[in-house]
Design a protein around this nucleic acid. Structure first.
Lengths: 314, 314
DNA sequence: ACCATTCAGGCCACTTCCTGACCGCAATGC
DNA sequence: GCATTGCGGTCAGGAAGTGGCCTGAATGGT
C-alpha cells in the first residue's frame, strides 16, 4: 500500500478511537513497528496530537488538536450528519443556517449514490420538521442552489411568484441568504438582464447546466441588504407578550431560544417575536398554566377560537 | 511539503468544489503541473472520482465516488455538524439516534477546544429542541458515555434514581440504547457487581478515569433486550385516534412522521402513538379544524382543560 | 477548418524518502 | 527488578516521487 493511503487508514483507525496498541496497528497496516512509529511521527508533524502510553498495555490515541483532522466517516454516520444538517438548514438553530447549507452541500456532493438514496429515504421525516410554520424547505433545491452559487454554474428553474403563473428562469446564481425562516436566492436573471432575489420555496426543478460563468459585481453592498431592500412585504411580525401563571423555568424549557422569559411576581412574562401565531399557541398549549395575553390582540382571538374548538371536543 | 500532506490539501481544495484549473492547483501546491497530474492519478487510484474537463477553461472536479472521501471541514462547518447531530441524537429523526451519537462523539473528540467552546455557546439553544416532552438530553453526558463505551473506559457518575437520593457509581460502560425518547446506558456496576441499566437523563457529572478495562460478556442477547427486560414502568403509551374536519394533506404537513393520516369521508383520521399527550395537543392547536377525539379519554380531558384555559384568556 | 488551451500519460534521469533491521534507552505496571 | 511497550538514532538498499520533455486527444472560440 501507498504511504499516503496508509496514513489515511491510520488516521481512520485512530478516529475509531479506542486505545490502539502499536503492535495491532502495525499489523493491520502491514508494516514493521518501526515504520508505524514513523507514521505516527508524520501525523504529529502534520499537527495532529497523537497521545502515546508506554509500558504494558500502552498504545496510541488521537486527541483533539489545533486543527480539525479529516473526518473519516462510516456510511451511516455520513447519513446521520446529512439528515442533521438538513434540520439545521431549515432553521432549527438561528444563525447557523448558511453554514449548515454549506456543510450539507459538501457532504452531499461527496456521498456516493447509495448513501444519497438512504438519506432520501429519511427525507419525508425531516423535511416536515419545520416548527411554527413557514414554508417547508426542500433540501434538494437548497443544496442545488448552494452548489451552483459556490461553483459559479448557471441555473435554470421554474419560479411561481405570488399570484402569478410559473415562469422559467435562466440565472447566474450569486448567493443564498436566510432571513427569518425564509431562504432567498440572489441571482442575475439572464433573460431580464437584471439582478433579482427569489424565494427558494417558490423555486422548482432547479438544475445546473454544467457550464460556468464569470461572476458579476452585485450592485449592492452585500446580498443580505439587496434582499432586504427587495422585500416589499416583510412577513407580518407579531410582538407577543404573554403572562403565565407558572414558573419561569418551565416556560423556558418549552420555548427555548425562541422567546425571552422573565419573572413577573409569581408569574412569568413571555415575550417572543413571530411571524406565525400558530407557534405561540403551540407553546401555550404545552404549558399547563393560565394565560393572560397582553399583545397582540390577534393572538388573543386565535387563542379563544382554539379554546372553543378544543372545548367542543368534549 | 510531504506527499501525504499535499494529497490531503489537494482533496481539501477539491472539496471546496469549484472547478479548479490544473494550473491553479499546481501553483497552490507548489509543484509542477506534471506532478499535479500524478497526484490526481493517485487520488483516482484511491477510489475517488475526479472529473476532468479539457480544453480552454477546463479543470478538475471531485465527484461522488464509491466510497466516502475524508471530509475536510472548515471550523464553522464542523460546528454546524455538531449542532445538527445534537438535535438528531435527541430523537429528531427516529432510527437515527444511535448513529448520530456515534458520529457526534467522533466529531467532538476531534474538535479543538476553541471549536468546542463555540459549539457550547449554541448549546442552550439546541438542547431545548426536544419536541413533545421527554426529558432534556445533555449532549455532553451523552457523548461522554458513548466515548467511554467505545473505548472501554471505566466511568464514574452520580445517579439519581426515581424517588431516591443521588448515589455515586463506578461502572464499566457497555452500550447506549435509545428507546422511544429515552436514552439508557447498559453498564456493569463495579460496586454492586452486577449489570444495570441507567437512564441517561438521571446521570450527572459523568467522567472517565482514563483507565481501560477488559469488556465482560453481557448476560443477555443484546443491550436492547437487556434494557427492555429491566424497565419496569414503560412510559405509558397512548394510542391516539382523532378525527379532524380538514384536508388530509394539511394534517400530514403538521404531524410529519409522527402520525398516520388517512381520509375519512370529508374528514381526516389521525392516528399516532405517543407517551406524552402534550404533543398531540400541540399538533391539534396548530390545525384550524374541529376535533373529535376517539381515544384516549385522557386526551379529550386534556384538550377540554386546555380549551377552557385558552378561553379564559379572552 | 484552424488554433490555443488544457488534460492524459509515456519516458527518462535524478533525487528524495521510505522501509526494515538493529540497537540502546525511557517509561510503566506488576 | 523485569517484561512490555513506545522512542528514536543509524544504516543500506530499494522504492517512489519529481520535473522536464514529449505526443495525443478533447474542447471551445475565431
Amino acid at each position: 500500500m501507498n504511504t499516503s493511503a496508509r496514513m489515511l487508514r491510520l488516521l481512520s483507525l485512530l478516529q475509531t478511537h479506542r486505545y490502539w496498541p502499536g503492535g495491532e496497528l502495525s499489523e493491520r497496516l502491514e508494516v514493521s513497528p518501526r515504520t508505524l512509529r514513523r507514521d505516527i511521527d508524520r501525523l504529529r508533524d502534520l499537527g495532529y496530537h497523537v497521545d502515546a502510553v508506554r509500558g504494558v498495555a500502552g498504545g496510541y490515541q488521537l486527541r483533539a488538536g489545533g486543527s480539525l483532522p479529516p473526518l473519516l466517516l462510516e456510511d451511516d454516520e455520513a447519513v446521520a450528519i446529512a439528515v442533521g444538517l438538513r434540520t439545521s438548514a431549515a432553521g432549527a438553530v438561528s444563525g447557523l443556517e448558511e453554514t449548515s447549507v454549506q456543510a450539507l452541500t459538501k457532504v452531499i456532493a461527496l456521498m456516493p449514490p447509495r448513501l444519497r438514496r438512504r438519506m432520501d429515504a429519511l427525507r419525508s421525516q425531516s423535511d416536515n420538521l419545520v416548527w411554527g410554520g413557514g414554508p417547508a424547505i426542500d433540501a434538494d433545491v437548497l443544496t442545488t442552489l448552494a452548489q451552483a452559487c459556490r461553483d459559479d454554474e448557471p441555473l435554470t428553474f421554474g419560479y411561481t411568484a405570488r399570484g402569478s403563473e410559473r415562469t422559467e428562469r435562466r440565472v447566474e446564481p450569486h448567493r443564498l441568504v436566510s432571513i427569518g425562516r425564509r431562504w432567498y436566492l440572489v441571482a442575475y436573471d439572464r433573460d431580464r438582464q437584471d439582478w433579482r432575489s427569489f424565494r427558494v420555496d417558490r423555486i422548482a426543478d432547479a438544475a445546473t447546466t454544467g457550464q460556468r460563468f464569470r461572476p458579476r459585481e452585485l450592485p449592492a453592498e452585500d446580498a443580505l441588504t439587496f434582499v432586504q431592500a427587495g422585500i416589499r412585504s416583510m412577513p407580518q411580525r407579531y410582538a407577543v407578550r404573554v403572562r403565565l401563571a407558572t414558573a419561569v423555568a418551565a416556560v423556558q424549557d418549552v420555548v427555548g431560544q425562541w422567546g425571552e422569559v422573565t419573572p413577573d411576581g409569581d408569574r412569568a412574562l413571555l415575550e417572543m417575536n413571530v411571524d406565525d401565531l400558530a407557534w405561540p399557541v403551540m407553546v401555550l398549549a404545552r404549558l399547563d398554566a393560565d394565560v393572560e395575553v397582553e399583545s397582540p390582540p390577534e393572538l388573543r382571538d386565535l387563542l379563544v377560537r382554539t379554546g372553543e374548538r378544543f372545548s367542543r371536543a368534549g
